[in-house]
Write a protein that binds this DNA or RNA. Structure first.
Lengths: 339, 339
DNA sequence: GCTTCCAATGGGAGCGCTCCCACCTCCCTT
DNA sequence: AAGGGAGGTGGGAGCGCTCCCATTGGAAGC
C-alpha cells in the first residue's frame, strides 16, 4: 500500500477491459459472468484483457446494479458482547462459513450486544446491507426479533427464540438430549438426580430443563426445581455448592452445559465428593472443555458446525427462492468417565 | 418477509424523501450526513420525511459513490478452517468488533483456510471489497502475505508472519512472556525445565521457544531442544509423554500454550506425577481452559481482546490517513497452582 | 445605495456494473 | 427464394447515492 498522495491511478474498470479487448462493455460483462451469446474469439480477447490489466470486478458496483450484496450476516445477540467469547460461536462460524463459501457469499459478523450494535443491525436489516441474516442467541423479548420479522429480508434463526417458532430456523434437539442424559443417569441406578439449569430466559435453558423434567417424571421421580446458572463455569460451581447444601444426598447432576458441569466438578472435588463414585455428572455441548475436564465429562454432543452449516444452507435456499422447512439437529450422548 | 411475488414495492430512496420534504436530493443528502449549509426548516422537513417513509440509506449506493465500503475484513489464514475453532479468535473478534463499531465499520470475517477461501480473500483485497484488512495466523510462506503487500489497501497484521516484520502490525510480547514464565519456574528452584513448543513454522511458536531459551541460557542452564506440538491438547499430551521418557528427571515444563499444558497435565496425572510437587507446569494464553484445568494453570496472560481492539484501531487510523506505529502488547504471568 | 460575500439551494455528472432492447447477420426452413 | 429464428453485438438507461458547481438572495460593509 502506498501512503503518498498517489496519482489517482484507479483500478481498471470493465470499460477499460472492453476497450482493450475491442468489444463493448456488454460483451465484456457477459464474459465475466460467463453468460451465453459471446463468440469464442471475443471471449478469449476479453479474458486476455482481463489478465493483462489485472482486472477485478468491483463488487460494490455489481451489488448496486444487481441489488444483491453478496454477503450474509451472522448476528449474535445477547446482553454482553463477551457472550461471543463462548467457543460455541466459533464452531458455528466454521460451519456457516464453509456453506456460505460454497454459495459465494461473504460473511458479515455482527455482535449486537450493545445499543449501538443493535442499531447497526437494524440498519443492516432495513437498509439491505446484506442479502440475508442468521440470527442467534436471541433473548426473551429481544427487540431484534421484531426487527427481523419486519425486515424484507430472509432471516434464519439459530435456535428458537423464547416462546415463538419463527418461520425458518435450525435448532438442536435440546429437550431430547437432556432427556437422554437424564435417562442415562437413571439407567445407571442414580435416583437423586439434581439439575443445574441454564438461563431460563433462553429457550435452550428451558428446553434442557424440560428434557430433564420429562425423564424424571417418566421414571416416577420428583424433578428438582430449577436451580439457574448462566452457562458459565463459576455459576456452575456456585449452583453445585447450593445444591449440595440443600440436598447433601444427591447422587447425580445434570448440568445444562459443559462449562457449568466443569464448575460442578470443581465444587464436588473441593467438597470431597468423588466423581462418578459419589456423584455422577453429565454435561451438554461436548466442547473441548468436556475432554479436558477431570474426570472427562460424559456429555450430550451437539453438532455445532452442522448447526452453522445448516443455517447458512437454509439461508441460501431462501435466497434462491425456495421455501425450506425448519430443521432440528439430533444430539447424542457421549459417555466418558464422569457418569 | 413476504414470499409472494411481491409488487416491486421497493425501499424509498433519497429522491423520494427529498420530494416529500419539498427539497432537492442534495439538501436531503446533506441532512442525512449532517453536513452544513442547510436551513433549520428544511432540515426538519427532511427529518420528518425520513421518519414518515421509514427511509434507510442504501449502503451499497453510498459505497459506490464514496468509494468506501464501510467494512473491514478480518482474515484468518491457516491450513484448516477448524483453526478458527480456537477460542482465541473469538476473543480477538470481541475486541475488534467493539473498536470497529466505534468507527462505524462492519466486520467481514474470512476464513482463508481453503483454496477457495484464499481466492476469495484475494478478490476482496484486489477488488476493494472492504476498506481495509486485518490478517491473522499467517503461516510460513503464506501466499496471502504477498497478496496483502500488493493490495492497495491498508493491511494490519495480527502477530508477525514468520521471518518478516510488516509495516503495520499488533503483536503480543511472546518472547518476553515465555522468558518470564521460564524465569518464574527457575526462581522456584526448578532446574530441569523442559519445553513443549508450538509449531515452529509460526512466529508465535518460535518466539515462545526463544523466550524459554533466553531464560535458560541466562541462568546458565542447557535449554531442552525443541519438542514440537501443534497447539492442541492431544499434542501436548503426546509431547509430554515423549519428554517423560527421554528425561524422567525433569521437574518442570513450560508449554507454549494452555491447550498443550492441559494435555501435559493429563499425561502427568496418568504417569502418576503430581503437579506441582513433582513437576511444575506453566502454560501460555490464559484462556478459559487454564482456570478449568486441574490443578488450575499458572500461565502467561495475554490481552487477547486488546489485540483485536488495537488491530482494529490501527486499521481505522490507517483509513484516516494516519501512519500508526506497530504495537507490541505486554503479557503478564498469572500464578495459580500448577507452578 | 451599491458592491461583496457567503449561506442556502438544486441540477447534473458521475461511481462501475448489469440488463433490457434494438439491431444485424447468418443459416436453416418451407 | 423469401421468411423466420437464433446467436452475436453494442447502446443506453438505470441502480441510489455523493459531490462539484453554478445560481440565488439577503446581510453586511463601504
Amino acid at each position: 500500500m502506498v501512503m503518498a498522495d498517489d496519482p489517482p491511478r484507479r483500478q481498471p474498470t470493465l470499460e477499460a477491459v472492453a476497450e482493450l479487448a475491442g468489444v463493448s462493455r456488454s460483451v465484456a460483462s457477459r464474459v465475466l459472468n460467463n453468460a451465453p451469446h459471446v463468440s469464442q474469439g471475443k471471449r478469449d480477447a476479453v479474458e486476455r484483457a482481463v489478465r493483462e490489466l489485472g482486472y477485478v470486478p468491483n463488487p460494490t458496483a455489481r451489488a448496486l446494479a444487481t441489488r444483491q450484496t453478496g454477503a450474509a450476516a451472522l448476528v449474535v445477540s445477547g446482553e454482553d458482547p463477551s457472550i461471543f467469547a463462548d467457543p460455541f460461536f466459533a464452531q458455528v462460524i466454521v460451519g456457516a462459513s464453509a456453506a456460505l463459501e460454497e454459495a459465494d457469499l461473504h460473511l458479515m459478523l455482527c455482535l449486537a450486544a450493545t445499543d449501538r450494535g443493535r442499531k447497526r443491525v437494524e440498519e443492516l436489516l432495513r437498509g439491505k446491507g446484506a442479502d440475508g441474516v442468521m440470527l442467534m442467541a436471541l433473548r426473551e423479548n429481544d427487540p431484534l426479533a421484531r426487527t427481523a420479522e419486519e425486515a424484507e429480508m430472509p432471516v434464519v434463526f439459530g435456535g428458537r427464540p423464547v416462546g415463538s417458532a419463527p418461520r425458518w430456523y435450525v435448532d438442536v434437539d435440546n429437550t431430547g438430549g437432556a432427556r437422554e442424559a437424564t435417562e442415562y443417569l437413571l439407567s445407571r441406578g442414580r435416583t437423586r438426580v439434581a439439575v443445574i439449569c441454564g438461563r431460563l430466559d433462553t429457550e435452550v435453558g428451558r428446553a434442557r430443563y424440560r428434557g430433564y423434567q420429562d425423564a424424571m417424571l417418566a421414571a416416577g421421580l420428583e424433578p428438582f426445581p430449577p436451580h439457574e446458572g448462566d452457562f458459565t463455569e463459576p455459576s456452575g460451581a456456585a449452583v453445585m455448592a447450593a445444591l449440595l447444601l440443600q440436598h447433601p444426598d444427591l447422587d447425580a447432576v445434570f448440568a445444562a452445559n459443559d462449562n457449568m458441569a466443569a464448575g460442578a466438578l470443581r465444587t464436588l472435588r473441593e467438597a470431597g465428593r468423588s466423581v462418578p463414585a459419589d456423584v455422577a455428572v453429565v454435561g451438554f455441548d461436548d466442547l473441548a472443555v468436556a475432554r479436558i475436564a477431570d474426570p472427562p465429562l460424559t456429555t450430550v454432543h451437539q453438532p455445532i458446525p452442522a448447526l452453522g452449516r445448516e443455517m447458512a444452507r437454509m439461508l441460501v435456499a431462501l435466497l434462491n427462492g425456495e421455501d425450506p422447512t425448519p430443521l432440528i439437529l439430533p444430539t447424542r450422548l457421549v459417555t466418558r468417565t464422569s457418569a
